[in-house]
Each structure stands twice: as structure tokens, then as C-alpha cells.
Simulated assay, not measured.
Amino acid sequence: MATQKDLPAPSEGLILTHFITVRDVAASRRFYADVFGGEVVLEENPAIVKIANGWIIMNPGGGPTPDKPDISLSAPEPGDPVSSFLNVRVADIAAFYTDATAKGARFLTEPLDRRAELRCYLHDPDGHLIEVGQATGILEGILADRTASSEQHHRPVTEPGRDR
């Protein structure tokens, strides 16, 4: 049974959680617990997985409710435009990529060097987009050079623990 310290219920101030609408709660719960090393604190209604210093809350979609009239929730369909995504920051993106891939995560590309950061994307079981990034050049004041060629600044990063 989850304790209050495990749940997103602040005793003062606020905390930030991320709610996602899912088709299969069990599959999504496993994905976030396994790939991101999360702790399942509530199995269903809603499912809640604590990851690092945040929580992912998952529930199936549904129609309007009294507190959100005229709003329906549904998981994304293939080809839907993306208007927001989960952004996860890691200390070692190559190690995270290797571990997550071994656990079944399917990335759009391997991590790419964007000068300011190393970055890659993946989808969860329902198609929600997740960015995984490691701050690198931005820590030194280097921002991505939008005028430089993609070849020069978007190199794959493949060795765990690789320094810039």
C-alpha cells in the first residue's frame, strides 16, 4: 500500500505531476516503471508511477466530467500532431539509451549530439512522445548552432559515459 510520501500529495506548496491518457494501463505502468526505473505507487484508477522526483499518472480516456465540461481525453493516434511531450533529463544518455533499449524501449534515433545537449526521442506504448536529453554544451554556454550543417553537429553518441 502506498504511503502519503509515495503519492503526489504535498503537505504544503505544490508539486508537478504528468497525467497521460492510455489505452492499456498495465502496459503503460510497466513501461514507465521498467524503462525509467519508476516505483509503482498505485496500480490502477489511476495508476501512478513515481520516477525520480516526479510522478506519471495514467488512466484511460473518457468524456467530459463536471469539472472539465466539453473536454474528452483520448490517447494519441498514429500520425496525430504533437503539442506537448515529456522531457526527461539524464546524467549519462548513452548508458540510459543502452539500458532502456535492453528493456524494450524503441527510440526514433540513437542519441544525437546537438552541441548544447545530447538528445533522442522515443514513444511510450500509447504513442506519447518522450524526449531524453543530457545537458552538455549548454552548461558551458554553447547553444545549438542552427546555421551549421546537420552532419557537423548532429553526430550519434554511442559509447556509455562518453564525454564531449
Rank of each mutant, 00 (worst) to 15 (best):
Q4V: 07
D6C: 12
P8Y: 08
P8K: 09
A9R: 13
A9F: 06
E12Y: 06
E12C: 02
I15R: 13
I15K: 13
L16I: 15
L16S: 11
H18K: 04
F19G: 06
I20A: 09
T21H: 06
D24G: 03
D24Q: 05
A26H: 14
A27G: 08
A27L: 08
S28T: 04
R29H: 11
D34P: 02
V35A: 00
F36Y: 12
G37A: 03
G37L: 03
G38D: 12
G38F: 09
G38R: 07
G38L: 07
V41L: 07
L42W: 15
E44N: 15
P46K: 00
P46N: 01
P46W: 00
A47E: 07
A47R: 01
V49W: 05
K50F: 08
I51V: 15
I51A: 10
A52E: 15
N53L: 08
N53H: 13
I57V: 10
N59F: 09
N59H: 14
P60Y: 04
G62S: 08
G62M: 08
G63K: 12
P64I: 12
P64L: 08
D67M: 07
K68V: 12
S72W: 04
S72R: 06
S74R: 12
S74W: 03
S74H: 08
S74F: 04
A75F: 10
P76S: 05
G79A: 06
V82G: 04
S84E: 05
S84A: 06
L86N: 01
N87I: 14
V88F: 06
R89G: 09
A91D: 14
A94P: 00
A94K: 01
A94C: 03
F96D: 01
Y97F: 12
Y97P: 01
T98W: 01
T98S: 04
T98I: 00
D99T: 15
A100C: 13
A100I: 07
A102N: 11
G104H: 04
A105V: 09
R106H: 14
R106G: 09
R106M: 11
F107L: 13
L108S: 12
L108H: 14
L108G: 11
L108R: 14
T109M: 09
E110Y: 10
P111Y: 12
L112Y: 02
D113Q: 08
D113R: 04
D113L: 03
D113K: 07
R114D: 05
R114H: 14
R114Y: 10
A116V: 05
E117G: 00
L118P: 00
R119K: 02
R119I: 10
Y121E: 03
L122T: 04
L122C: 08
P125V: 03
G127H: 01
G127F: 03
H128M: 05
A135K: 07
A135L: 11
T136M: 07
G137S: 08
E140Q: 06
I142Q: 10
L143Q: 15
A144E: 09
D145Y: 06
R146W: 07
A148F: 02
A148P: 02
A148V: 06
A148L: 05
S149C: 11
E151P: 00
H153F: 14
P156I: 13
V157N: 00
T158L: 02
E159T: 15
P160R: 11
G161F: 05
G161V: 12
G161T: 09
G161I: 10
D163V: 15
R164F: 03
